[in-house]
């Protein structure tokens, strides 16, 4: 899929995520908008062995969406891929929807339930380890948030992956630098996240997380990396990307636009 098509798809994901949040009256839109391009690249570029037809295939690549709160974008991408009908997206926020405020493993295409932060990397380590033990070729990709990297369990997992030489494990950090109530640097310290991963022994690449060429090239490179280290992409992104007044503002971690904000957001997203 060419980059222009990926961009169009990402734009649709942002539009739909916004509409789902407005319709539900709740949802973590800011982080969904920052991870959108990365998700579209992962699911639509053909780098990973993913397909609704391969559900249950032991050799399918495993995507662990650890920053579960950003699931609006994930749901859109999975529906677009055909894991479930797009009509389900319109039921988000309604009683009886299959698409909750955080993803569960019963949703087609979702490998693990997530929502509480700091769990996905350890689970990813276990999956990657099982592939090594069983000589399977699948890759495991864990999608983390930079705020999530404040959890101690992430660094337990980071040490384990290095010690176990989990070269089949890739993490990608949505480094939007904004958490729920503050810039992450306000509580983690103003250090380089990439340096931290590197010091834990991971192949580390830092990219622009909204540049499809960079996302795809880095994923391709790390998936084919032959050394014995796990790999991480620190993807610099913008929280609220695509809606001008939301960008880099923690109020939109789970804030819901109202009144004129809705019109402005629609204009920014090309919905009007």
């Amino acid at each position: 899929m060419d980059i222009n098509t990926l961009k169009q798809k990402a734009n649709w994901v942002r539009q739909k995520s916004f509409q789902m949040q407005i319709s539900a009256g709740k949802g973590h839109l800011g982080g969904a908008l920052s991870i959108t391009d990365i998700l579209v690249a992962i699911y639509c570029s053909g780098i990973f062995n993913l397909s609704p037809k391969k559900k249950g295939d032991p050799e399918r690549d495993r995507i662990i969406f650890s920053k579960g709160h950003a699931c609006l974008a994930l749901y859109c991408v999975l529906a677009d891929k055909g894991y479930f009908p797009k009509e389900q997206l319109d039921k988000h926020g309604q009683n009886g929807t299959i698409l909750g405020g955080h993803p569960d493993h019963f949703i087609p295409g979702v490998e693990v339930s997530s929502g509480s932060l700091g769990h996905g990397l350890g689970i990813g380590c276990g999956l990657a380890l099982s592939a090594k033990l069983d000589k399977k070729s699948f890759s495991t990709l864990v999608i983390l948030g930079d705020g999530e990297c404040n959890e101690g369990s992430i660094w337990e997992g980071a040490s384990f992956a290095t010690q176990q030489k989990l070269s089949n494990l890739i993490a990608i950090v949505d480094n939007n630098k904004v958490a729920a109530t503050a810039f992450t640097r306000n509580f983690t310290g103003n250090f380089s996240l990439a340096s931290k991963w590197k010091s834990f022994g991971w192949n580390t690449i830092q990219i622009d997380g909204h540049n499809f060429k960079q996302i795809i090239n880095s994923l391709k490179k790390l998936k084919q990396m032959k050394n014995s280290k796990p790999s991480v992409i620190v993807a610099d992104t913008v929280k609220g990307k695509g809606i001008s007044f939301m960008e880099n503002d923690y109020h939109w971690h789970h804030g819901v636009p109202k009144g004129e904000q809705i019109q402005l957001a629609k204009k920014d997203l090309g919905l009007v």
Binding site: E111, V112, H119, L121, G122, I123, G124, C125, G126, L127, A128, L129, S130, T140, S153, G157, F160
Partner: peptide, 8 residues
């Protein structure tokens, strides 16, 4: 967490 991944 690793146990969960292995069990999966």
């Amino acid at each position: 967490s690793v146990a969960a991944g292995l069990a999966l």
